[in-house]
């Protein structure tokens, strides 16, 4: 009998490689280059990669990189925007490499994931940020998703720029983690779902 999907930290290089393949396919499907610049940030002890797994099939992933001497992936184009916060001693982290492969899931289980199928990944990233006492969870998003992140309580911290290595536009956003649940939109079913998965 098929198990329910689980969201957990990926344990070894093989699993992390499979996660990178999911991200690569997702980027390429949108005609972007996945590049390799983020890989160096994901290999250290400051990063964690989560996977969405059902019956040992990995079909979704998200990673969180905690700020360190190495910096964050988004420093490539947003170092000036992050600098004042670092000067104030704020603890930063960045969410990167979020992707869900609906086709992998469909091939294995005959149907695509439910509409809320990727929520556990968001919950895992947020739980990790809370556990690490992160002040600001940063993310470099594609501008087409700005409405969604606004709805979740993220605030824009950097202007639209171009990620040359990816070939895509970006906008920097950040969520004030200690008060993530104070935003109105998180009172709705999406926020409740995140809370439900954070409790697991």
């Amino acid at each position: 009998m098929s198990k329910d999907p689980e969201c957990r930290v990926l344990r070894n290089d093989s699993e992390r490689l499979a996660a990178r393949a999911i991200v690569k396919r997702a980027y390429e499907a949108q005609r972007y280059s996945a590049g390799s610049r983020i890989a160096q940030y994901l290999q250290g002890s400051h990063a964690v990669t989560f996977g969405l797994i059902r019956d040992e099939i990995l079909y979704g992933t998200i990673s969180v990189v905690v700020d360190s001497e190495q910096g964050l992936p988004m420093d490539t184009i947003y170092a000036d925007e992050l600098s004042p916060w670092r000067s104030l001693g704020e603890k930063l982290a960045e969410v990167v490499q979020f992707a869900v492969d609906h086709d992998v899931y469909a091939a294995a289980f005959g149907t695509k994931p439910t509409l809320f199928g990727a929520v556990p990944l968001f919950a895992a990233a947020l739980s990790h940020a809370l556990a690490k006492n992160i002040d600001y969870l940063c993310i470099s998003i594609n501008p087409k998703h700005d409405h969604f992140y606004n709805m979740l309580g993220f605030k824009q911290i950097g202007a639209r720029k171009q990620y040359e290595s990816v070939g895509a536009p970006a906008i920097a956003y950040a969520l004030y983690v200690p008060e993530w649940d104070k935003h109105g939109s998180t009172k709705g079913f999406f926020g409740k779902e995140i809370l439900k998965h954070m409790a697991v």
């Binding site: 949108q30 609906h102 969604f148 939109s185 709705g188």
Partner: peptide, 22 residues
């Protein structure tokens, strides 16, 4: 038409659900 086929990615699906909720 399935929503997961129409949406470019998972974020777009989330946005749709939240828009309906709002």
């Amino acid at each position: 038409r399935k929503l997961v086929d129409l949406a470019e990615d998972s974020i777009a699906l989330f946005e749709l659900l939240i828009r309906f909720e709002q």
